[in-house]
Every structure is written in structure tokens, then in C-alpha cells.
Design a protein around this nucleic acid. Structure first.
Length: 317
DNA sequence: GCGTCCAGGTCTACC
DNA sequence: GGTAGACCTGGACGC
């Protein structure tokens, strides 16, 4: 396992450099089969604030929150071949927590050997292991991923971006350099349903957001506990679906970000991609899609995602 | 510029 | 368990 443990091990080996006395750079070792490029572009999250991706200059920006102090800092993460370099302002911030969060969002502790083994003999998927793809970018908290997933339901990607941007800009903790973190459950719980409707443009989802924020802020619901849950995936899915506004698609999307790939996360886009690639552009039942990926067992959701997003990457590594 | 239609996933009521 | 209609927004399109 990489992630937190390794981050702790590295905590005494920080590589610090002052840049004009304004910022410092911390380095973090990555697993041998980690690809920065394939991870940050693994799905649409890098397009949503507080993520900011610069493909040309190869860095990913994210605004981290220190839960204890309540402060937020903007961090620029870039790849240095075997290491990540994280540039942060030269200010007081819990660096162990920051490194843990970086490991979490980039899935450094994901063990994909079994997945690569499951797909290595499958025509059309060999590139995945070769490119070290398969790590799916996620937010620093499950709560943030849950809210963002709700923002993807029943709307266009542009509306998802709009809602997420409004949440961050109107309710996120500001950083010293003018950026904002994703709002905490407490910050969301302080605004009304009308605020979600009129300011966030969440439409009919507004009461769902208000209810979710209230539950998470009061401690009645603890989305972070799902990361450590021992429940079988079907049971955990049932628990996630108990959140108003979360149906099959949203629950499976969140499970995917929790590291459980049993579900295919079928939405209209994914179905259309499958019809195009494997069914002669003809519509078919979901059961046929499920049958196609059944052989990958607990990895079927990740196998399908990689299969459908193959053409997102210009050249294979 | 305005009106209309459509896509998108979930909830609720009903069978 | 399956199905139909409502929910709401932004984009596309026609006028």
C-alpha cells in the first residue's frame, strides 16, 4: 500500500525550496506504475473547481482545506518522474495532512496489479497496463465527491460545471491567492433551499443538497466512513442510495471513487460509447453491456471505463 | 429576442 | 418489479 503510510515515511524527507520567499515545494514519491497524465485526465473531475488543470504545462491545481484550522491553501502539483512536486504558499499548514490528501486524490495507494492481470489478455485493453492508466482522480473528501456526483445527475456537463463553480465561488473558504476550496458541509448547511435554487442554479436538486448538507454537518451522515466500510458493495450501495437524489448511476459513480468497481456506472454517455464501439452503433439493453464486461468480475466497472475512454488520450505511452 | 423542444437521472405514484 | 410522468436547466433550433 502506498498513500498515507508512505506519506508519513516521507514526512522527514521533505524537499523544501524557497521560491522568492513566497512558496515552498514538497516532493512525494509515487508508485512505479503511476501515471500523472492518465490519472488527472481519467475523468471529468479535473475540469471542476477547485481542481484546475493545465495540460500544456502539466500541472494540476487543487485547493486543500485544513479541517482543524479551517484554513485553505492552493497547491500546484506537477510530475517529476517517480516523484510529485507540490508547490504551496510558504505559510502554516498541516503538511502531513496535505500529503495524505494528495495521495488520496491521485490514488497513490491503489493497488492495480490484480486489475492489470485481469485485462492483460483482453484485446483492446492491453494499453491500460502499458500506460499505467486506471487510477481515477477523486476529491479530497467523499462529501465533495458526493455533492459533485449529484451535480452530474440529469443535466449537461456545462450545468454540472456551473453548479460546482457556484458552490465553490459562493460558499468555499478563500485562500490567500484568491482561490476557493470546496465548501464544507457546515457552509452548505448554513444556506437555504432557495439559495441552492437561485444562486447555485441547482433546480429540483436544491432540497436534496440542503438535506445532505444538514445530515453531514450534524454528523447524522458520515460519507467519509464509506471509505473504510466493510460492507459488501451491494449493501454499501443501498446505504449510499438512501441519500435523497442518489440513484443507481450516482451511487455507482461514488462507489467507483471509493475504489469499488463492481458497478458499470451506466449513464447516457457511457451507453452511447458502448453502442458505438461494440454494438455497431445500435442501441441494446443494459444486460448486454453487463454481459460484455462480466468476465472482469469486481473490476468490470473500471474495465468498462478504461475501454470507453481510450480515445481521450492522443498517444499511448 | 422569444418560444418550443429535448436531453439528462431520480423520485413518486401507480399497476 | 416495472413503468409513466414530473422535476429543472441550458442548449439547439426555428421564427
Amino acid at each position: 500500500m502506498f498513500g498515507l503510510k508512505i506519506c508519513k515515511d516521507l514526512s522527514t524527507e521533505y524537499f523544501r525550496t524557497n521560491i522568492n520567499g513566497m512558496s515552498q515545494i514538497i516532493s512525494l514519491e509515487t508508485p512505479a506504475n503511476f501515471s500523472f497524465k492518465y490519472t488527472v485526465k481519467s475523468h471529468g473531475w479535473s475540469d471542476l473547481p477547485p481542481f484546475e488543470l493545465d495540460e500544456e504545462n502539466r500541472w494540476l491545481n487543487y485547493v486543500f482545506t485544513d479541517k482543524n484550522s479551517g484554513s485553505a491553501i492552493s497547491a500546484r502539483i506537477s510530475d517529476g518522474g517517480g516523484k510529485l512536486y507540490i508547490e504551496i504558499p510558504d505559510t502554516e499548514f498541516n503538511q502531513d495532512k496535505l500529503l495524505g490528501d494528495v495521495g488520496h486524490i491521485l490514488r497513490l495507494d491503489d493497488d492495480l496489479d490484480d486489475f492489470y492481470g485481469a485485462i492483460e489478455k483482453t484485446n483492446g485493453l492491453a494499453w491500460v497496463a502499458k500506460a499505467n492508466a486506471g487510477r481515477l482522480l477523486r476529491s479530497a473528501t467523499v462529501f465533495e465527491d458526493l455533492v459533485k456526483t449529484l451535480c452530474t445527475t440529469n443535466c449537461s456537463w456545462s450545468l454540472t460545471k456551473k453548479m460546482t463553480t457556484n458552490l465553490v465561488e459562493k460558499l468555499g473558504t478563500p485562500t490567500a491567492d484568491g482561490k476557493r476550496a470546496f465548501p464544507t458541509p457546515q457552509a452548505l448547511a448554513e444556506v437555504s433551499v432557495d439559495f441552492f435554487r437561485n444562486e447555485i442554479r441547482a433546480g429540483y436538486r436544491s432540497p436534496y443538497f440542503a438535506e445532505l448538507a444538514e445530515s453531514a454537518a450534524s454528523g447524522k451522515l458520515d460519507p467519509e466512513s464509506w471509505l473504510r466500510s466493510d460492507l459488501p458493495t451491494a449493501e454499501l450501495k443501498k446505504e449510499i442510495k438512501a441519500v435523497k437524489g442518489v440513484g443507481d448511476y450516482a451511487a455507482e459513480n461514488l462507489l467507483k471513487l471509493l475504489g469499488r468497481y463492481d458497478g458499470l456506472v451506466l449513464d447516457s454517455w457511457l451507453r452511447a460509447q458502448f453502442y458505438k464501439k461494440h454494438n455497431g452503433e445500435k442501441v441494446c439493453a443494459d444486460k448486454k453491456i453487463e454481459k460484455h464486461y462480466r468476465k472482469f468480475r469486481s473490476w468490470r466497472g473500471l474495465a468498462m471505463w478504461c475501454d470507453m475512454t481510450e480515445n481521450w488520450f492522443d498517444e499511448k505511452q
